[in-house]
Each structure stands twice: as structure tokens, then as C-alpha cells.
Lab assay of single mutants.
Amino acid sequence: TSIVNVSSSLNVRSSASTSSKVIGSLSGNTKVTIVGEEGAFYKIEYKGSHGYVAKEYI
């Protein structure tokens, strides 16, 4: 489990790309479970499925 480190919110994306669809967002200090990594993104558990967040904010 890791913590989201942002002051406002962090986009959760459908794939490991800044141009991919935003499927949701997480607020600062939210706990997330990392299940993998791809480039500059972590794959996380998100709403019963998976999403991707930028590593620099975790």
C-alpha cells in the first residue's frame, strides 16, 4: 500500500500514457495498492479493476 502525494487530485488513467482516457481521480493522502508498473506509471487497484497513475505522485 502506498499513499497519493498531491495537494489537489491525481488522475487515474485507463493505460500508462498521459494521453490515455481519465477514468477517475484520487485525492491526496489516499491509500492505493500497486499491482505493477509500466514506464513512468504504476498500475493500481481501482474500483474493482485497474488504473494507472504517474509514479512521481505516489
Results as ranks from 00 to 15, higher is better:
1 T>F: 07
1 T>E: 12
1 T>C: 15
1 T>H: 14
1 T>P: 12
2 S>L: 14
2 S>P: 09
2 S>I: 15
2 S>V: 15
2 S>A: 15
2 S>M: 15
2 S>W: 15
3 I>S: 09
3 I>R: 06
3 I>P: 06
3 I>W: 13
4 V>M: 09
4 V>W: 05
4 V>N: 08
4 V>S: 08
4 V>Y: 06
5 N>Q: 10
5 N>A: 10
5 N>E: 09
5 N>W: 10
5 N>C: 15
5 N>L: 14
5 N>Y: 09
5 N>H: 12
6 V>N: 09
6 V>A: 10
6 V>K: 08
6 V>S: 12
6 V>Y: 05
6 V>Q: 08
6 V>I: 14
6 V>T: 13
7 S>T: 14
7 S>A: 11
7 S>N: 12
7 S>H: 12
7 S>M: 11
7 S>R: 06
8 S>E: 12
8 S>I: 13
8 S>V: 14
8 S>G: 15
8 S>K: 12
8 S>C: 15
8 S>W: 13
8 S>F: 14
9 S>N: 11
9 S>I: 13
10 L>G: 06
10 L>K: 04
10 L>A: 14
10 L>V: 15
10 L>N: 05
10 L>I: 15
10 L>E: 04
10 L>C: 15
11 N>C: 15
11 N>H: 14
11 N>A: 15
11 N>V: 15
11 N>Q: 15
12 V>N: 00
12 V>L: 03
12 V>W: 01
12 V>T: 01
12 V>R: 00
12 V>I: 08
12 V>P: 01
12 V>Q: 00
13 R>Y: 15
13 R>I: 07
13 R>C: 11
13 R>V: 12
13 R>T: 12
13 R>M: 15
13 R>F: 15
13 R>Q: 14
13 R>P: 02
14 S>F: 12
14 S>I: 14
14 S>K: 13
14 S>D: 14
15 S>P: 01
15 S>R: 09
15 S>D: 12
15 S>C: 13
15 S>V: 05
15 S>N: 09
15 S>E: 15
15 S>A: 13
16 A>C: 05
16 A>E: 02
16 A>N: 04
16 A>Q: 02
17 S>T: 09
17 S>F: 05
17 S>G: 06
17 S>W: 04
17 S>R: 05
18 T>D: 13
18 T>R: 10
18 T>G: 10
18 T>N: 14
18 T>C: 15
18 T>Q: 11
18 T>H: 15
19 S>L: 10
19 S>T: 12
19 S>A: 12
19 S>E: 13
19 S>F: 09
19 S>H: 11
20 S>D: 03
20 S>T: 03
20 S>M: 02
20 S>C: 05
20 S>G: 13
20 S>F: 06
21 K>Q: 11
21 K>P: 15
21 K>R: 12
21 K>A: 13
21 K>W: 08
21 K>M: 11
21 K>V: 10
22 V>E: 04
22 V>I: 15
22 V>R: 04
23 I>R: 02
23 I>K: 03
23 I>S: 02
23 I>D: 01
23 I>H: 02
24 G>W: 05
24 G>F: 09
24 G>E: 02
24 G>I: 05
24 G>H: 03
25 S>W: 13
25 S>E: 10
25 S>G: 06
25 S>C: 15
26 L>A: 02
26 L>E: 01
26 L>S: 02
26 L>H: 02
26 L>N: 00
26 L>Q: 02
26 L>R: 00
26 L>W: 03
27 S>Q: 14
27 S>R: 13
27 S>L: 12
27 S>C: 14
27 S>D: 14
28 G>A: 15
28 G>V: 13
28 G>N: 14
28 G>D: 09
28 G>I: 14
28 G>M: 13
28 G>T: 12
29 N>F: 13
29 N>T: 08
29 N>C: 14
29 N>I: 08
29 N>W: 13
30 T>W: 07
30 T>V: 10
30 T>N: 07
30 T>E: 11
31 K>P: 12
31 K>L: 14
31 K>M: 13
31 K>E: 11
31 K>H: 11
31 K>V: 14
31 K>S: 11
31 K>D: 07
32 V>F: 08
32 V>S: 01
32 V>N: 01
32 V>G: 01
32 V>A: 04
32 V>W: 04
33 T>C: 10
33 T>N: 10
33 T>I: 12
33 T>H: 09
33 T>P: 03
33 T>A: 07
33 T>D: 06
33 T>Q: 08
34 I>C: 04
34 I>H: 01
34 I>W: 03
34 I>N: 01
34 I>P: 02
34 I>V: 09
34 I>Y: 02
34 I>A: 02
34 I>K: 02
35 V>W: 05
35 V>S: 04
35 V>K: 05
35 V>G: 01
35 V>C: 07
35 V>L: 14
35 V>H: 04
35 V>P: 00
35 V>I: 14
35 V>D: 02
36 G>W: 03
36 G>L: 04
36 G>E: 05
36 G>Q: 04
36 G>M: 04
36 G>S: 07
36 G>V: 03
37 E>A: 07
37 E>C: 08
37 E>Y: 05
37 E>K: 05
37 E>T: 07
37 E>L: 06
37 E>H: 06
37 E>P: 02
37 E>V: 09
38 E>P: 00
38 E>M: 07
38 E>L: 06
39 G>P: 02
39 G>R: 04
39 G>S: 04
39 G>M: 04
39 G>D: 06
39 G>Q: 04
39 G>C: 05
39 G>W: 04
40 A>I: 09
40 A>Y: 07
40 A>K: 10
40 A>Q: 11
40 A>E: 13
40 A>N: 13
40 A>V: 07
40 A>M: 11
40 A>W: 06
41 F>P: 00
41 F>L: 01
41 F>V: 01
41 F>C: 02
42 Y>R: 00
42 Y>T: 01
42 Y>G: 00
42 Y>D: 01
42 Y>W: 12
42 Y>A: 03
43 K>V: 10
43 K>Y: 05
43 K>P: 00
43 K>N: 02
43 K>S: 03
43 K>A: 05
43 K>F: 04
43 K>D: 01
44 I>R: 00
44 I>K: 00
44 I>S: 02
44 I>T: 00
44 I>C: 01
44 I>A: 00
45 E>M: 11
45 E>S: 07
45 E>A: 09
45 E>Q: 09
45 E>I: 13
45 E>P: 04
45 E>R: 07
46 Y>D: 00
46 Y>P: 00
46 Y>Q: 00
46 Y>T: 01
46 Y>E: 01
46 Y>M: 03
46 Y>V: 02
46 Y>R: 00
46 Y>G: 00
46 Y>K: 00
47 K>W: 06
47 K>N: 14
47 K>E: 11
47 K>Y: 08
47 K>C: 14
47 K>S: 07
47 K>F: 09
48 G>D: 08
48 G>N: 09
48 G>F: 05
48 G>H: 06
48 G>T: 06
48 G>E: 07
48 G>Y: 04
48 G>I: 03
49 S>C: 09
49 S>W: 06
49 S>D: 08
49 S>F: 08
50 H>F: 15
50 H>Y: 15
50 H>Q: 05
50 H>P: 05
51 G>R: 01
51 G>A: 08
51 G>L: 02
51 G>H: 01
51 G>D: 00
51 G>V: 03
51 G>F: 03
51 G>E: 01
52 Y>L: 01
52 Y>H: 01
52 Y>P: 00
53 V>D: 01
53 V>H: 01
53 V>A: 03
53 V>I: 13
53 V>W: 00
53 V>L: 05
53 V>C: 02
53 V>F: 02
53 V>N: 00
54 A>M: 14
54 A>Q: 14
55 K>H: 03
55 K>F: 03
55 K>R: 07
55 K>Y: 03
55 K>G: 02
55 K>Q: 05
55 K>M: 07
56 E>Y: 09
56 E>H: 10
56 E>N: 07
56 E>L: 08
57 Y>N: 10
57 Y>E: 15
57 Y>P: 05
57 Y>G: 14
57 Y>Q: 11
57 Y>H: 14
57 Y>W: 09
57 Y>R: 07
57 Y>T: 08
57 Y>I: 06
58 I>W: 07
58 I>N: 04
58 I>P: 04
58 I>M: 07
58 I>V: 10
58 I>R: 03
58 I>Y: 06
